[in-house]
Design a protein around this nucleic acid. Structure first.
Lengths: 192, 192
DNA sequence: TGGCGTGGAGAACGTTCGTTCTCTACTCTA
DNA sequence: TAGAGTAGAGAACGAACGTTCTCCACGCCA
């Protein structure tokens, strides 16, 4: 097992355990056991737990946004369909058996106050999502695409929180219907 | 100091510390030090940390909803103003210096998987908020008040998450404008 | 073949956790 | 004043944490 594979297995274990139970609830020995990587190599790859958490969040950010963007690119045939497609993707995510809300929101609640590095990684993710939503609304014929993107972002975050706590993926449908209404209201009123 | 005062001081300390730093980050000795209640009395009032956390959440639920409902009752002069008044209250909450997001969302991320009692307290709170929002939309002349309440709930949760992570209370204004648009769209289209 | 450096297994370190125990001081009642 | 019960301060306990260290087995160049 070379350095790259050890790193990947550590990040896989970190993602499963930290996302599933919270960061503070999981010890480094659990990461070692689940990854099959020795403690010595673990600390060679990540000199401290905080750096493992940070790397886990950065990798999850990239994968999460890629998955969303790929889905929207595939299923939204026109720019006007993109915002609702975001919520279709959310519905699939919420229905995954190990869904437990937004990893970044959960980590922020746990560590945001006491770890500036992790707080920064979390803000990086949220800003990237915001940027992605803006790229979708900028293509639409609306008066204020940034304001619309912020509203969609708010719905996305709210749906995620409510789906996690209630356990009901249908929260995505509420977000979707609200997004559709906001989208319709934001379009220049041609038909009037 | 009698039993009631000890209990209140413990809950005050628990609220400050658990909300400010997360539950797992705060030890029982910190609660003792901040409350001025001896460890022996602490364990007489709350035989385990989990029960202190549960009591902290239950008390916060009552106070949080009372504060919101009082504000809305005071400042919303018509039923139609109530939904946006909710977001006016949020703006004030977000601007408080120790605001750190929703205590229930944060606790759920930390403990929701491993502590059924705390998960239940969190769901109780969210269901109570849902019920309150429904009581507001039921008074409106809209086709589906429950669906509208769920949309408002989604915006409320999303605004809270984004305000906490970004540190910008303006997230409440985004929620407010989206709520106003949804409210207008939900009203029977008399004027058309 | 023989030394040598790398890597794994897991013991060990010091700290902190939740929780319990000990000891002392004080306050009531007879 | 003597005795009994309560409460506080804080030591003590076992477990778990993040991190480091020890020891041994194995693969490489002379």
């Amino acid at each position: 097992m070379d350095h790259e594979e050890a790193r990947a297995r550590l990040l896989d274990a970190a993602e499963t355990e930290f996302y599933g139970h919270g960061v503070r609830a999981v010890g480094m020995d659990t990461i070692r056991a689940r990854s099959g990587v020795s403690l010595k190599r673990l600390y060679q790859c990540f000199p401290a737990k905080e750096q493992l958490v940070e790397a886990y969040l950065l990798r999850r950010d990239e994968r999460w946004r890629s998955s969303l963007a790929d889905y929207v690119a595939t299923y939204a045939h026109t720019p006007a369909d993109a915002p609702t497609a975001v919520f279709d993707w959310l519905l699939e995510w919420f229905a995954e058996p190990d869904f437990r809300g937004c990893a970044f929101v959960n980590s922020f609640g746990e560590l945001g106050t006491d770890s500036p590095r992790i707080a920064a990684a979390i803000r990086l993710h949220k800003d990237a999502v915001r940027g992605y939503l803006r790229s979708l609304t900028e293509r639409l014929d609306v008066a204020d695409p940034y304001a619309l993107a912020e509203q969609l972002f708010t719905l996305l975050e709210g749906a995620t929180v409510l789906a996690a706590i209630s356990g009901d993926p249908a929260a995505a449908r509420t977000g979707r219907s609200a997004a559709a209404t906001l989208l319709a209201a934001a379009r220049p009123a041609r038909e009037c």
